[in-house]
């Protein structure tokens, strides 16, 4: 009985922290709210383990590769 009580107390503590306290903390802490917003916009799961789990990794790689390979330099200076 005592063991079950311990288990349910721990589960209750997790529930309280994540479902009750977290939304309150996020609401009153602008950086956390901004963090949640950008993660949502970019479809990022902050717990993702590897780059293949993060959709923006492919976009980032393409952007950086293209920048290096096709670095815009514009018209060459006119010959003097």
């Amino acid at each position: 009985m005592k063991k079950f009580l311990q288990l349910f107390s721990a589960l209750f503590a997790i529930w309280l922290f994540l479902w009750v306290l977290t939304p309150i903390i996020v609401r009153y802490c602008p950086p956390l709210a901004h963090y949640a917003k950008v993660a949502e916009e970019n479809d990022i799961m902050p717990g993702a383990l590897y780059y293949t789990d993060v959709p923006v990794s492919a976009e980032s790689e393409r952007n950086n590769r293209d920048t290096i390979q096709f670095l815009p330099h514009g018209p060459r200076p006119d010959p003097q």
């Binding site: 993660a39 970019n42 993702a48 383990l49 590897y50 789990d53 993060v54 923006v56 990794s57 790689e61």
Partner: peptide, 26 residues
């Protein structure tokens, strides 16, 4: 440490930071 957290923290600063952060982590 975590790859997902890197992308999210980069996005916090802006697209450029996110691109660089995600690529370095990759």
């Amino acid at each position: 440490d975590s790859t997902g957290a890197v992308a999210a923290a980069g996005a916090f600063l802006g697209d450029k930071a996110m691109y660089v952060a995600a690529t370095i982590k990759m």
